[in-house]
């Protein structure tokens, strides 16, 4: 293991697991990403090295434009790095084709967005069912899973509602249900509370903590807000496309 990797390793705030750590869920090594804008090449991320263990709940903080979303997108397999290694669950996802990546995302990553990104023409039930359409599950199995998941997020009585008939907090809970319905190992959330009032935000954060502790989901959450970051077990700071400082306990 190289030096910078050790430096930025994210340790959980809660007591370490009894057994020794297995391979990290996310291994990032010397990752770089730039965007081409016209003639110009804009470097966004440079030389990122980072490990995230299975079961971590990591907050990604930093000023606007520091590359948080870009990093999250790379880890979640919806964008490709220019160079560097990126292994998730032992698989080097940079080598996958577009359609292999799509399949990989469908079964390995759950997505939560700032603006929920629900399909406006689908009901809460149908939105949650959406990812299951890509699996071979039968209708009744899907129904069972969707109903169960919606009741876990407290929306059993809103299944037939369309997104525009739900509050922001409720919509985000639908989105959380959609993110976990396929039982992915990794959940990525880009400012999941950014569009919510304080109490709805608290609900959502509490729910994400439960996903982490009760279901053992590994979560990476981008946030602007220190308060929100406190829900995580660890915080990583990004600035100008680089990870700055050491691991910082979230409770600090």
């Amino acid at each position: 293991m190289s030096a910078p990797r050790v430096e930025t390793r994210v340790e959980p705030r809660v007591e370490p697991r009894a057994e020794p750590r297995a391979e990290p869920l996310v291994e990032i090594h010397n990752l770089a990403k730039s965007y081409v804008r016209g003639e110009q090449i804009v470097p966004v991320l440079s030389d990122i090295t980072l490990d995230i263990q299975e079961g971590d709940f990591t907050a990604l903080m930093g000023p606007s434009g520091s590359g948080k979303t870009t990093l999250l997108n790379l880890v979640a397999g919806i964008d490709k790095p220019d160079c560097g290694t990126l292994r998730v669950g032992g698989l080097d996802i940079t080598t996958l084709t577009e359609s292999q990546l799509a399949d990989w995302r469908a079964s390995n990553v759950g997505f939560i967005f700032q603006f929920y990104n629900l399909m406006p023409v689908l009901t809460a039930y149908e939105n949650v069912e959406l990812p299951l359409m890509l699996t071979g599950l039968g209708r009744s199995e899907r129904r069972e899973r969707v109903e169960m998941t919606l009741s876990v997020v407290g929306l059993a009585d809103r299944m037939k509602h369309y997104p525009n008939e739900l509050s922001g907090g409720q919509q985000q809970r639908v989105a959380i249900a959609r993110a976990v319905i396929t039982d992915p190992r990794l959940i990525v959330a880009d400012e999941p509370t950014g569009d919510l009032d304080r109490s709805s935000a608290a609900d959502i954060l509490a729910m994400m903590q439960r996903l982490n502790t009760e279901l053992g989901k590994t979560i990476i959450m981008v946030t602007h807000d220190g308060q929100s970051a406190r829900a995580a077990k660890a915080i990583i700071h990004l600035e100008k496309g680089e990870i700055i400082g050491n691991v910082e306990p979230a409770s600090a």
């Binding site: 919806i78 577009e98 995302r105 997505f111 990104n117 959406l130 990812p131 890509l134």
Partner: peptide, 14 residues
Amino acid sequence: TAEYATLKTLGFGP
């Protein structure tokens, strides 16, 4: 556009 991108994110193909 954003909805189609979301569908793709979830694993639906082009």
